[in-house]
Amino acid sequence: MISEEILIRECKKHNRIAQKELYETYTPVMFGICIRYAVNDAEAKDIMQEGFIKIFSHIKQFKGKGTFEGWMKRIMINTAITHYHKTRKSRTNRNIDEVDATSIHEETQQQNEISDGIDRTDIDEKNINFDIVEQAGLNVNDLLSALNTIPEAFKLVFNLYCIEGYKHKDISEMLRIDEKTSRTRLSRARNLLQKKIYELSIKKVGK
């Protein structure tokens, strides 16, 4: 296997073989990032391809400060954010600022009742039995499906803050929003995810 240093050097020379090698080496990691920001697999694939093209065209800018994987991840995240801004207007999304927690809660309950027939009217935010969550042993796919149920803007802030480790100040700059908005979105995302995860856990344990 070619070392990372040689790969980078050859990619800077636009060597196709090296580019292919780099792509194949980092595809799983990068796809893991993209899937968290995308709505579905196809969109994740698009973001990843776009990200790799950016990587190949800007690879000369990588001066060796920090890890190469970290640099690539940042490009992927930025690509995902750009993609979000591009597609936001075209999507028939509700204005998330107007969405309040109550309406989301009601909506989620209604959807779940329709989908699995379990009555969740007794689920109270303050009286959640979290042992069920532990028992359920949710896997990555469950967590992803829960993440995909919350509004995209909430998901974006949650991903950037909780998983990538960015600060609210950075997030506000990246998403072109206020810091306060970023905090609010994170809080809402947490609440929604807790409920969703609890519901998923009940469903799993019940089975």
Partner: peptide
């Protein structure tokens, strides 16, 4: 939740 997602992803 944060820890749960961090560990998983």
């Amino acid at each position: 939740i944060e820890q749960l997602y961090q560990d998983a992803f």
